[in-house]
Amino acid sequence: MKIKKKYHGTIVPLVTPINEKFQLDKEAINRMLENLKQFDASPFILGTTGESALLSNSLRLEYLETVSGIRSSEHKLYVGISSNSMRETIEFSKMCFDLGADAVVATLPFYYKLSENQIKEYFLQLADHVAGPMIIYNIPSTTHMSIPLDLLNELSYHEHIVGTKDSERSEERLKESLALWSDRPDFSHLLGWAAKSTYALINGSDGLVPSTGNLAPSIYQGMYQAIAEGAEEKAYQYQRQSDLLGDLYQTDRTLGESLWALKVLMQSVGLCEPYMMPPLQGLSAEEIDALKVSFRKLVKEEGIKLNIYNHV
């Protein structure tokens, strides 16, 4: 029987909704959190999908304060704390816990390439000073470094390090990770590679962190339920929906462009506006129209369950 660990389930890396003046859209945050709650998903703010590296400290704190004030107590709140300054990272982590975060999430700094020993010392120093549970986030596509699994396993025994969110696209790494941690009651494996969601859950992963959950958290709720019922074929049908939606906004786009396209799709169901924090920019009106047409067609053909929000 699969161990149900403290940190598990669908954890959606929320976009940061902003208006045309690059101010936080608090009404959009309300809608986004309500959308997650209806499909039993937890919020993860200030991660890669949330454009965290481009946000001012004041806006990051405002987002944290806003979510903390309205989020459902039924679900955990995960908050990204990373910056290139360890001092700022530690100070922000303390604000997170003061405002009710259940766990903080830390990547490597992304300017200097670090040796394996430097990676180890960075996370140990960070964990020693963070005042609560910390999840190590491995994302080579932005940090340009991969955290070795043997090192991560060593770090996993620190009292404050409670899990890893892994977005590295490596089947071998995924299999080794599940072998290491699926039976560890004190350490969670959370997958940030949406294309392997069903495989990972069937084989012992504790949770998913899919950006597509911003738009259709119903997919991952259905996937979990199907796996719990032993209906693997049905679970892979939900995987297909996840893949098709992900391909729609990610294929042939840079990471920044794909985040814009995700916001465009979220706009089409009334969740938020598609504004991006500079230097990220949106693309053409023609591309917006094509995206929305393709999205409506895909939703209809696949029967994807979505919430539609109407607002002024």
Rank of each mutant, 00 (worst) to 15 (best):
H158V: 10
G163R: 03
D166T: 00
R169M: 05
S170D: 13
E171Q: 09
R173I: 04
K175E: 12
E176R: 14
S177I: 01
L180G: 00
L180T: 01
S182V: 00
S182E: 02
D186E: 14
F187P: 08
F187R: 06
S188V: 02
L191T: 07
G192N: 14
A194G: 09
S197I: 02
S197P: 00
T198C: 11
T198F: 00
Y199N: 00
L201P: 03
L201F: 06
I202N: 00
S205P: 00
S205D: 09
D206E: 11
P210W: 13
S211K: 05
T212D: 11
N214M: 05
N214Y: 08
S218M: 05
I219G: 08
Y220A: 05
Q221F: 06
Q221S: 05
M223L: 09
I227E: 08
I227L: 10
E229F: 07
E229Y: 11
E232Y: 03
K234N: 07
Q237K: 13
Q237M: 09
Y238I: 02
Q241R: 12
D243H: 04
L245Y: 04
G246S: 14
T251H: 13
T254D: 10
L255W: 13
E257A: 15
E257Y: 05
S258A: 15
S258G: 13
L262K: 11
L265I: 07
L265F: 11
S268C: 10
V269K: 10
G270I: 09
G270S: 10
C272V: 07
C272I: 00
E273Y: 05
E273V: 06
P278V: 04
P279T: 04
S284V: 02
A285I: 07
A290S: 15
